[in-house]
């Protein structure tokens, strides 16, 4: 995809004049905590009324600007914890704070994306990208300008008037990505956003997302079962274990930024980190 134009995304346009070096911007944990998950539990009523603990005493602090990835086997409660952050699921016990405010429901400062594109089939690609802006009462011409810019960034300018049924799966997920970017969220919450794509498209979309994200310096939480994806994209990896869902590993990757998602996989540092986590996972 068009990497150069991807950097022209209008976030923080005030300092976009010079050549930016995203690594120069502080992403180190400061006192500024964007997401704070405090001792959350999720307990379901299981068979014959026996309670089933899906998430047990999970606490996570995500500093502003950090890219956190949560990996783990299916059924480990990683999506549940993400949905608690998103305000889509209320924890049975414990609290979640976004930007120091307790989460009571979905916040308009968060951008959520999942494996299904969930595009509205009666809207064109452009109108789908504008959906969140429409909800926020952004005037039509401003919406239009933003959606056109974003569709260009994800390489779909020529498809702005196409309906979802006319687009391939990868293109649809790009539209969904543009829709999430359009609302300029403070916090990205991503639930396996690339899981439904074929290997090549997945890699393309991962790097497109990384490029878009690098210019925003926003906090991001990615849930995935793909360890390579997690290491390639994130600054910090949380590994969840199942039965009950809990954190079994919390590790900073310390890989350099900005990075190229496609080539970073061949760097020795990447492989060291990935192998280390993989071995830790196996020994647990």
């Amino acid at each position: 995809m068009d990497g150069n134009s991807a950097k022209a995304i209008p976030y923080e346009s005030a300092d976009s004049s010079g050549v930016k070096s995203p690594s120069a911007v502080s992403r180190k944990p400061s006192g500024d905590i964007a997401i704070s998950v405090q001792n959350v539990f999720q307990i379901f009523k299981g068979h014959e009324g026996k309670p089933f603990t899906a998430v047990e005493d999970v606490s996570i602090d995500v500093p502003a600007g950090q890219f956190l990835a949560i990996v783990g086997p299916s059924g480990c409660g990683k999506t549940t914890v993400l949905n608690m952050m998103a305000g889509l699921v209320a924890p049975s016990k414990g609290q979640v704070y976004l930007n120091n405010e307790e989460v009571k429901g979905p916040s308009r400062s968060m951008g959520y994306m999942f494996a299904r594109d969930a595009l509205l089939p009666w809207r064109t690609a452009r109108d789908n990208v504008e959906f969140g802006l429409e909800l926020r009462g952004v005037p039509a011409d401003a919406r239009r300008a933003r959606s056109q810019k974003l569709l260009k960034l994800v390489g779909l300018s020529k498809f702005e008037n196409a309906y979802p049924s006319q687009l391939s799966q990868g293109m649809r997920q790009r539209v969904a990505l543009a829709r999430t970017m359009a609302i300029e969220p403070d916090i990205f919450l991503l639930d396996e956003p690339f899981a439904a794509l074929d290997a090549q498209t997945k890699l393309q979309l991962e790097s497109e997302f990384e490029l878009l994200w690098q210019d925003t310096h926003k906090t991001a939480v990615l849930v995935t079962h793909d360890l390579d994806e997690a290491v390639a994209l994130a600054d910090r990896i949380l590994v969840f274990g199942a039965n009950p869902g809990r954190i079994i590993l919390d590790r900073m990757t310390n890989l350099p930024r900005p990075r190229n998602v496609e080539s970073i996989r061949y760097m020795p540092e990447f492989q060291v980190v990935a192998r280390e986590i993989w071995e830790l996972l196996r020994s647990k």
Binding site: L88, P106, R116, L135
Partner: peptide, 26 residues
């Protein structure tokens, strides 16, 4: 209404009125 689309609308911060007019009705 497709449950994924409903979830998307919620996550996007749609009010119940907006969800109704922009998602459920179409």
């Amino acid at each position: 209404t497709d449950s994924d689309i409903m979830m998307m609308a919620r996550a996007m911060g749609a009010t119940s009125r907006q969800t109704y007019l922009k998602v459920v009705l179409p």
